[in-house]
Amino acid sequence: MRESSTRPVPTTPLAALEPVMLTGERVRLEPLAEEHADGLRAAVADGEIWRLPYAPHIPAPAEVDASVASLRGDVDAGRRLAWAVVRPADGRVLGLTTFMNLALADRGLEIGNTYLAASAHRTGVNAEMKLLLLTHAFDTLGCLRVEFRVHHLNHASRRAVERLGAQQEGILRAHRILPDGTVRHTVVYSILAGEWPGVRAALRHRLGG
């Protein structure tokens, strides 16, 4: 392990998380609002990404309003933060991402429920989005750990998380029963605060910075 479990760390919990806008060159992360629903409908229709296997968190176009309302309810209850992923150049909504499974007492959280329009894949949008989210988590909030959880058969997402420099910790076997009745084994990855400078440098290099 790269971080010593005996090294003293802050014992005060993270403060309750507040919605905040995060801005980069390729993307702007706007706190999720009702007015993003139309753009999210277009995003999930782009490439019909809601049909992707092993991604039941992506709503079909007809389910977007309910998904946005549910996520906003979680934000209001302090259970997560949610952002619409927006392209600054033209204001187009490209997708959605969240901070979830908040562990404020232990200074940890998960980045999850992320999806992007098919046309935004392999454009640097995901890399910059992760750079903004991780910078906020580690440098602003003071997290010790950021986690990612992926369906064991979602190899594209697993490769994307591994390219970030996240370390695989293990697999939660038979972790969830999905809506179609299949069983998901969940692969758990994490980045620790001591690993963040290296991850940040690699992301900046990928983005040409």
Rank of each mutant, 00 (worst) to 15 (best):
G73F: 05
A89S: 03
L172N: 12
L132A: 03
L29T: 11
A42H: 10
R26I: 04
A43D: 00
T182K: 05
G198W: 11
F138E: 10
G112D: 04
S4I: 13
E110V: 06
M100C: 06
R145E: 07
E110S: 12
A60E: 09
L164H: 07
R173N: 13
P88S: 11
V161Q: 00
P53K: 14
Y54S: 09
A193E: 15
V75D: 08
I49F: 12
T23G: 03
H152Q: 07
A193L: 04
P10H: 06
E110D: 10
G165C: 01
Y189A: 04
A201Y: 10
H151Y: 02
I49W: 11
A118E: 05
P13Q: 15
A118Y: 09
L22Y: 11
N101W: 04
A89E: 04
R28S: 05
T12N: 12
R107F: 11
F138Q: 02
G95Y: 00
A16V: 15
P179Y: 12
R158N: 09
D90S: 15
L192E: 01
F99T: 08
H205K: 13
I49N: 01
T23E: 09
V183D: 12
L131K: 10
A137L: 15
D65W: 01
A45E: 02
R92F: 04
L104H: 06
N154P: 14
M129Y: 13
P59M: 02
G24A: 12
G95N: 00
L192W: 12
R28C: 07
A193Y: 00
D139N: 14
P56K: 03
I191K: 04
A16P: 01
A202L: 02
A45F: 06
W83K: 01
G47Q: 11
T123L: 15
A127L: 02
I49E: 01
G39V: 05
E110W: 08
H152G: 12
A84F: 00
M129V: 09
L94W: 10
L172S: 12
V9F: 12
V183S: 10
H36N: 11
P61S: 09
I58Q: 08
V86K: 00
A160G: 11
R79L: 14
H185D: 08
R149A: 13
L109I: 02
N101F: 08
I171R: 14
P53H: 14
L32F: 07
L192M: 13
I111S: 05
D139M: 10
R2Y: 03
L131A: 01
I58D: 05
R72G: 12
L133N: 06
L81N: 05
A117N: 13
V125Q: 10
D38R: 04
I111V: 13
S157C: 00
V199K: 00
V27E: 02
V187P: 02
A160R: 08
A15H: 08
I49Q: 00
M1K: 07
L40D: 14
L40A: 12
A117E: 01
F148H: 07
L52I: 07
Y189N: 05
R28F: 00
E34V: 14
I111F: 01
D38Y: 07
A89V: 08
P197I: 04
S70V: 01
